[in-house]
């Protein structure tokens, strides 16, 4: 069992935040991990994301970027940067509405829905774990060790290829409301289509909470 973990360098993120990323396949203890989040176990302060809803690194890291930016501007909408990452994966619910006609619902039910859709659940097979350390705490070694000890699964590099293979596109299309876009369905080239999907997903996330 390797306890290596990727440290991700993102542009335009204050350097005190260090982002750690790991992908686990065939996770055997999703129920346990889910339970730790529900009980708010402070030792399990991670963004545990169900890999089936992630299309690419750009997709995932966009949620991380937004969460870390919010944390450093002190405008988090959820308890911490990790829950914020999961919540940020949700699409805007008002893409089609005009600026003035939106009746804002309270955030809470939407955030709970985001945890349910994008976060770890008892049914999670493949899991993305993100940990944002601040000012070197906890250390990369500690994070790698803690994850290796507590996540039962095969750790693999979180590459675009791997993430594409663990994605469930029917879920992605449903959650990001991409069904029925005729021009998108007409794109024959697979990688061109993936790129478009990725851009639409990131765009939907960028609008969320605005």
């Amino acid at each position: 069992m390797s306890s290596e973990i990727e440290v991700v360098q993102l542009d335009h993120i204050p350097s005190r935040h260090v982002i750690h990323l790991a992908l686990f396949q065939d996770v055997g203890n999703a129920e346990f991990l889910h339970k730790q989040l529900l009980s708010r176990n402070a030792d399990f302060e991670y963004a545990f994301v169900d890999a089936s809803v992630i299309v690419s690194r750009l997709h995932l890291l966009s949620a991380v970027f937004k969460a870390v930016t919010s944390a450093s501007n002190d405008v988090l909408k959820t308890p911490n940067v990790h829950s914020e990452i999961v919540a940020n994966l949700a699409a805007s619910n008002n893409v089609r509405n005009h600026a003035h006609s939106v009746i804002q619902m309270t955030d809470a039910p939407q955030i709970a829905e985001a945890y349910r859709r994008y976060g770890v659940s008892t049914a999670t097979k493949n899991l993305v774990a993100v940990k944002v350390a601040e000012n070197g705490s906890p250390s990369t070694e500690q994070i790698a060790e803690h994850l290796a000890k507590n996540v039962e699964g095969t750790q693999v590099p979180a590459t675009d290829e791997k993430l594409a293979s663990t994605a469930d596109m029917s879920k992605v299309f449903k959650y990001y409301k991409l069904n029925g876009l005729n021009w998108l369905d007409k794109i024959k080239d697979h990688s061109a289509k993936q790129k478009e999907v990725e851009m639409l997903v990131v765009g939907a996330m960028a609008l969320r909470g605005l």
């Binding site: 876009l181 021009w183 990131v202 765009g203 939907a204 960028a206």
Partner: peptide, 28 residues
């Protein structure tokens, strides 16, 4: 900021060639 982001996203969803939105900060 908001209205431009919304219009751009809407165009993209409709398949119109405009720049996609990566991120936005209406306060910043």
């Amino acid at each position: 900021i908001l209205s431009e982001a919304r219009i751009l996203s809407r165009c993209r969803r409709e398949g119109i060639r405009v720049p996609g939105v990566y991120a936005s900060d209406e306060v910043g």
